[in-house]
Design a protein around this nucleic acid. Sequence first.
RNA 1: GGUUUCGUAGUGUAGUGGUUAGCACUCCAGACUUUGAAUCUGGCGACCUGGGUUCGAAUCCCUGCGAGACCUCCA
Length: 798
Amino acid sequence: MGTGGKGYKPPALQLEKLLALGLDQRTAENALVNSKVTANLAAVIAEAGISWCDKSVGNLLYAVATKYPNNALVHRPALIDYIVSMKIKNPAQLDAALSFLTNVGPDPLDTGKFEEACGVGVVVSIEEIHSTVTKVLHENMEAILEQRYHINVGNLCGQVRKRHPWGDAKATKEEIEKRLAEILGPKTEADNVKPVKTKKGKPAKSEEKKVAVATVAPPSEDLNPYSHFPEPAENNKVHTEIFFSDGNIWRAHNTKEILEKHLMATGGKVTTRFPPEPNGYLHIGHAKAMFIDFGLAKERNGYCYLRFDDTNPEAEKKEYIDHIQEIVHWLGWEPYKVTYTSDYFQALYEHAVELIQKGLAYVDHQIKEGRENNLDSPWRDRPIEESLKLFEDMRRGLIAEGAATLRMKQDMQNDTRNMYDLIAYRVKFTPHPHAGDKWCIYPSYDYAHCMVDSFENITHSLCTLEFDVRRPSYYWVLVALGLYQPYVWEYSRLNISHNIMSKRKLNRLVTEKWVDGWDDPRLLTLAGLRRRGVSAATINSFIRGMGITRCDNSLIPFERLEYHIREELNKTASRAMVVLHPLKVVITNLEDGKVIDLDGKKWPDAPADEASSYYKVPFSRTVYIEKTDFRLEDPKDYYGLAPGKSALLRYAFPIKCTEVIHGDNPDDIGEIRAEYDPSKTSKPKGVLHWVAEPAPGVEPLKVEIRLFEKLFLSENPAGLEDKEPEGTAWLRDLNPHSKEVVKGAYAVPSLAAAVVGNKFQFERLGYFAVDTDSTPEKLVFNRTVTLRDSYGKAGGPR
RNA sequence: GGUUUCGUAGUGUAGUGGUUAGCACUCCAGACUUUGAAUCUGGCGACCUGGGUUCGAAUCCCUGCGAGACCUCCA
């Protein structure tokens, strides 16, 4: 299993040996289950040269076995000496020692500095502790007297420990508790009452509230999603350990010289890259990547490249390159430079030759079958000259596609598949959208990505978690060629419910016309979201709200995105009225031919005394309301119109239904008659949106409205069980009602001026954006999102 | 199956050994309301399990359990 390949000898370590070190029975048993820990323990015991010791020493040795930094293994025996000889005798000292050694790494150990760092030989007398406790209590006296026994003793201990890192912590705490008892006397009733949880900074009075709101203004500032990324100058730690089946281990890290050269080139600035392959349209998952790559660079005042990772010309197109540049800009990001992996093809080629010359790559002719058994390729050890010649033949187009590849000579017997002599170059007689037909050999991701990161002096190479397993290979290439190594960190992919995100599946939906193109508003492509009416700011705030983590087992509910959409559109979208399914209402007590000009408010809180806050709404004898706002029955929780019932027309008058005119079918309601209340004395609960004939006999503005539902029925269509190899379960899960086109909607006259990109709230219906299909004759609106609806929840029937 | 990552309110997260475990959404209750909207007030609600280390563990170490991802001449 695991250990064999990593160069550990299976240790003959028995439980008794561990118990002899004073370890807890369960701890010892648990340790023996873990082969890596067992091996380390065996090595530590051997280095210590003891078979029995005190419990405290044993625990320290156990901590060394489990926590020792692997970049400083050469110093482990020295550390163990300190422990066995009791110069390092408690966990605090050991922690200091381990962090010191992590920084030293394989470099020579400065004993003096080391001993100082972990307090070797330092003795803190009990008197010193007592006197420091006195000082600390004195400094905190005000709080102590106020909070009495609710004071945070741990915090006080911490203050003492800061001044005496190597003092006896137990004695400190006992002393503090003793002194508190002296100061405060016996506990009162109040001291024993558990403190009641209150929201912090809760001002009781509303007057104080306004002040508080003003001062607590920037709480979002302290939540910086990029704070955990290291500084470029810190990039000298071991990135990863590359284990080989022969027991060899490479600990990939930058040497001082390489790091200095890198820092010189970048001026020490953070440099990132957003590296999409131009083989499709970008989706909201890429928005997360951009938020991280461009966002980090922006936050640290650094650079972010937009790099087209165009190593495989087969699916790549100029169309995608153009779209990606455009949509990156739309999302609000400005690349430092736009580059292409294909721009580096020459340099990559030369490094490949170098790799062959070093005996670290070879031309191979194996196909997939035959590589299953971890066996070396029969061509693995062919002469270097032969590989050089064949590689040259590949480059010159003398070798057929599939007949040869260049493989990196990594480790075919490795525990992990990601070191199985990965392909560096393959032959493809496909013209390249950016490089043209100059090349017929193309580098692989594994070979090219790390190197181009290095060429571009990327400080933080950030990608999604599925790339985590390729770390060894990433660094293998850079170590093999002696190149600068970026810091790599992976984050979780974004999954959103009731939709799919993989480019392959998106491509299929588009090319097989399950949807209306890459920018179909039901898709989570950035183009689709934009067309639907979602702004760049909304997308970015949605991403920011989720955070950047390595938790990869979550499916974000689509409703979460809807929340952010509403949050913004509520502030930015002006209001208007549209009736989706019109029902004619004749106002019988309004004289025929009369048109009353009313004012609708563009925003609920727009200033009342400004003309720009309003739009004109004509009210006439023929008005239209929503069909669903009229019912023959009138249950208690229903606010709409019904026979004999009143409802308020928004911005206009209350109307009362006086008569129902049925159509041919008795169930049909052809139109209704109503009387309006010009005095507005009645106060009906229900408020309806409406559109009236702008002039007698003139039909209102007719518009097309497109309504959208979830694209898929299941929460996670991509995760659907699938027996067939070509997997179509997700296609069968497509929601047949995901799109509804309403052709005969009526709109208020002011909407005639709307142009593509405009966004509105149609009152009581939701937020809508003017679609690109609009023509001068006919406006088309997409519903971006409905309004939040608590009908049936709070205040409604349950 | 192998490799690997991740487990903090219902959801997404903050948390670098000492906090009354913070925030946002959801949910519940109320106020206001010419959008069953918005806004405002209040409330419910969490450290996966077991051990160890420590004066002190959500935090460090190990076990178990659970969930996800990857195993291409794709990136």
